[in-house]
Design a protein around this nucleic acid. Structure first.
Lengths: 199, 199, 199, 199
DNA sequence: GATGAATGAGTGTTCATTCAT
DNA sequence: GATGAATGAACACTCATTCAT
């Protein structure tokens, strides 16, 4: 990890805990182990660090969304209930929420959304709009296997989406992201899946 | 509204939008229309404003929880499906979330919870623990009318709780709390209630 | 002299010697004997000090120009060659150029005029336009005594004006304004006056 | 123009507009199109750029003064009133004042003279002492043609000198050196020459 | 109740300069 | 010849706070 990456890493950890404004350039540099003047060789100003993080996050989720489409298009996944479930889990958990970078970005967005229009847009898209869209697609594929009728899909997805969203806020965007919290989240997800879709 | 109350009001609006640290004593005084030295007549220091807000919030929700118990204990509400539903609505909407003071406090807690233990505790209690507890009680009372079997209650409450929580984050703790967002929230609540509990 | 006036005084001395940009707020405060934060109680920012100086200078020369008009209108000064001469001297020396505040402001304007439109306008007005105008008026009054024909006035004033301007730049806006330089200026003025207008 | 010359050229333009201290090494390099570290290959430090400019200026005026002497010594120019006039014009206009390099150096000296002894010495010499000396010599040569008596020379030169000095400050060391200003200067010079010396 | 004046510590940022490559 | 990366010192300015009035 070069200096520029180190700065972004440290900054994200601090921003996502205390908020952008409350973190000083001094704080970041102290943790990275460089002088403040050095930071300004790598970034135009403090805002530029935030912008770079947002840019990185955007390309992260772009490649993620592309990846999700590819999985959907995978012929092997058809007629396979299990795979669909795994896709959904893995989509939510591994990529958006469990990935350290994305998880911290989501926290940062939660903090900043109240006074930063760009952050709010991204926050809504990332936590509400995109997940619902993806989940809807997954369930539609699943329905093609005859698992449930088309008529029920919207309701099923809405329930599923709200349950996952609640768990996300409760376990993954709250306190530190410990293994314990991840497990608790994982356990509740599977309880829900079993209750609703197995048997 | 006297000066002390004005300070708290202005501070809350600013804190809940930009976070405690990012708001300066200067900002608050400028908006209130007093000199900074005057603020220190009314509050020991900046932290004291935050503490006073938290104290006010705590007594707010205490009286609220007492109020909820009273309603539950109201003999007229028994055997009355409709009233139970209204209680639930009114609990969520009028008190916790629609009340301007509480809504702003919840936003502040969302922002501060990541680095302030006291705020996190309050945040979890107010948005996850307490609501679930209350909702569980309401559904238990409702079940006594024979509306649904005891076995289903936990699942029903969990689904209900997650749906309301998701809607809260999506509509009431996101952007400015406009009438439009309130209406959208209200509409989705009623759609859910109808789908699940009527007929 | 209160703190605000002290700041302006010290700032002017420094600005007029090293230029506005080259003088730091630290420099000024160090000389005044206050902390930098105190300066910002009295002035909005560094530029505000400069603006206040310019404002003070403008009202200075405004009252000066009014004063000059009054002298012109003084009935006792008519038909009195000597008085006219003294008026001219006193106008140039006592007010614009010898007055410590104005002299330093002129130096500051000399320095800043090359990159500051407002300063350039003031510089041209104060050193070229206004003096010529005043001198022309004085000579016109003088001509009414029959001292010289109307036809010659323009030439006489132009010569006089250029001589005084040169002496100003050579003696009063060059190096420190010492008594020695004042005397040298004074001497050359009188040599010129004698050569041109006596006998 | 090689890099070293480019740096000096850009630096002079900036120094003469905003003053030495107010111009940063960054500013210069940005305009030249090199990195700051590169500048230190060509110059020891920032001061070295200024010193090099001063050195260049000194050799400029040295060769200029030699050139003036040569013209004086030119046998063809004797007994030729017109040529004398042209000499004077060309001395003032073409060399010292109209030449872009010298003009900018004079501006820089005007700015720096108040706090830099070396600059002040050069400023006085270049704008007051040398011109007067040269003008005196020119008029002496001219007087040898019988154009005017020796007794008047000093007065004539003083008047001429002060007029030219005033015009220099008014037109050539004020604002940007545009063609318009050059023309205005030129016109006033010729008006003066005609008024004083023709017919 | 409120304010004018002050302050030490801290804010983000720019400065001229160095040095290995 | 030129640059990428770094730095200590300085920059203008804001911070929460104090205290006499």
């Amino acid at each position: 990890m070069n200096t520029r990456e180190k700065i972004m890493d440290v900054a994200l950890h601090m921003f996502s805990e205390r908020g952008y404004e409350a973190v000083s350039v001094r704080d970041i540099c102290g943790e990275v182990g460089i002088k403040e003047s050095t930071l300004y060789y790598h970034f135009k100003n403090k805002k530029d660090i935030l912008d770079s993080l947002v840019e990185k996050f955007k390309s992260h989720i772009d490649s993620l969304l592309r990846h999700v489409d590819e999985i959907d298009a995978d012929p092997d996944s058809k007629n396979d209930e299990d795979k669909s479930l795994k896709m959904m889990d893995s989509y939510m958990m591994d990529s958006y929420l469990f990935d350290p970078f994305c998880n911290l970005m989501l926290r940062l967005m939660m903090i900043e959304q109240f006074h930063n229009e760009e952050m709010r847009t991204l926050y809504e898209k990332t936590l509400f709009t995109d997940p619902y869209e993806i989940q809807l697609n997954v369930f539609k594929k699943w329905a093609e296997t005859g698992a449930f009728s088309d008529m029920d899909i919207e309701m099923i997805v809405k329930d599923y989406h709200s349950y996952m969203t609640m768990l996300t806020f409760k376990y993954l965007l709250n306190g530190e992201l410990t293994e314990k919290r991840k497990k608790a989240y994982y356990k509740e997800v599977h309880e829900y899946m079993t209750r609703r879709f197995s048997a």
